[in-house]
Design a protein around this nucleic acid. Structure first.
Lengths: 189, 189
DNA sequence: GTCTATATTTTGATAGAC
DNA sequence: GTCTATCAAAATATAGAC
């Protein structure tokens, strides 16, 4: 475990504040106060508020992209690929609960990196949708509109960060398998 | 169809802007510009920016509460109650896409009405969870953690506003039944 | 109902001392 | 690496004329 730099600490605390109130509502003075220093001192470590947001969001978005590429090119069947995607979201979300809030809610406040983020997001959704479509063709998945299925599963996975911290007794493998059961086989008996 | 008052128009346009950038990032000048007037003129119709947010969120939250109470006290079985909840979300979300964004993302910026909102939200979730628990007892619903089931279904329903406007060919009844199928019976064949 | 003018506070960010 | 002091811009909101 490497020592956390002051910059990393600022980004970590910022993400926590962004989760509570959103990027726009958090001031550099709020952040400084949470760090126990003055606002001006922050600028010895970071270039701008925007820079903090960019770092939080882009690193997470790239992590999801890398995970999806591995799953996509694996030789699993479609249901197992879906289970791997669920595990990917549970893993990344539980490792960075605060950052996930920014990724979900504050991406529109990206400036220079907005287009890049949007491309990663669209590509991710296309890969996801294609897995569902392949599953329909192969007969693994019911022939229901892939867009609605993707929307339903993906919004649940994207909202994990809201819910994970509430569970004291968090077992990641158990959560992944419970979610897989609910999302894939439904809830009716 | 009653004539829209100037105040209602301001609230409608504000909700649209809040959906795009969030409450905190939208200024009264942004709103005035979208209305084609000056910022000072807004205050002839509304008391404050906070008042706009309060109106948007509380009216929607109360609409959901009323709907839930009707469903809860009906004599439907649990699966049909769930289907009714799905229809409730599809109906309200499609009628007020912009407002749903504030309800989901900007409730923490409520000031005076924050506690009231939080009570409505907790009550709603308790009613939802109790329906699932009853379904487990009656054997209609699989015996999986009710919290995870509720989280999964409710986050999907709460995110409908993101996705509904993308569909040109929106048929509300069809969307409700497709969602019911996916959320209740799953996606695997 | 809208305007101009303006008060007051808060914002992100910089300069320079220590 | 942090501070004080400060800037320039932008924020919500009010007063009063038309």
């Amino acid at each position: 475990m490497k020592q956390e730099t002051r910059k990393q600490e600022i980004i970590r605390i910022a993400a926590k504040l962004f989760k509570e109130k959103g990027y726009s509502a958090v001031t550099m003075r709020d952040l400084a106060k949470a760090m126990g220093i003055k606002a001006a001192s922050l600028y010895n470590h970071i270039n701008s508020k925007q820079d903090i947001l960019k770092t939080i969001i882009i690193s997470l978005a790239e992590e999801f992209t890398e995970g999806m590429k591995l799953i996509q090119t694996s030789d699993e069947n479609c249901i197992d690929k879906l289970k791997s995607i669920i595990e990917l979201h549970v893993r990344i979300s539980s490792q960075n609960i605060y950052g996930m809030a920014s990724l979900n809610n504050d991406w529109m406040h990206l400036e220079e990196k907005l287009e890049y983020y949007q491309k990663l997001r669209i590509d991710y959704e296309n890969d996801f949708r294609n897995i569902l479509k392949e599953g329909i063709v192969s007969g693994e998945i019911v022939n229901v509109k892939p867009d609605v299925m993707m929307f339903s599963i993906l919004t649940t996975l994207r909202s994990l960060y809201i819910w994970i911290p509430k569970k004291e007794d968090l077992n990641l493998e158990e959560l992944s398998s419970t979610l897989s059961k609910i999302l894939i086989t439904g809830i009716n008996k």
